[in-house]
Amino acid sequence: MSLNYICKAKLILAMTNMKIHAFKICTLLFFAFSIAGYSQNVKLLNIDQLNERIKNGKDSTYVVNFWATWCAPCIKELPHFEKVGAEYKSEKLAVLLVSVDFKSKLNSAVIPFVKRKNMKSEVFLLNESSPQEYIDRIDKNWSGSIPATLFIKGDKRKFVETEFTYEQLLTEYKKL
């Protein structure tokens, strides 16, 4: 709403001599808001879609972290994943944060959490209903406790069911 008003005000200004200038500001504001909006989007993702994504990006390294809004150690380590993701973006690192919150919590817990923490990584909500199947499909050794993280680079695949410090996470990533 406020953006609209700013733009309207600017458009009035544009009626005078500042036509181009105002248009630039509006465009800039529009993009700034839409980028912020994009980063706070949470998409549903099932295991097939996750596997497809990884298959289609053979040249990338994937760090897939399984977390939940109710999981204290997960919340503690999320900033480390954000930081690694931002710092090594140029090395084709994709950090995917996959929440295992109940699907009913998407709008009431997951999206508000992602907004509040201003998370920049790609955030998903796992769209699966049977843990008996999906836990083993992520990794046979996964007991189901979170946090848990899957590292994938080419054909290399490593699964770790533990909480990370930033240094530990960086070490795991560099080892790939």
């Binding site: 150690p73 295992v100 843990p131 008996q132 836990i135 189901g144 406790s145 533990t162």
Partner: peptide, 10 residues
Amino acid sequence: ETKEIGCTVK
């Protein structure tokens, strides 16, 4: 044997 999500042992 079954599997379920849960809080990790602290």
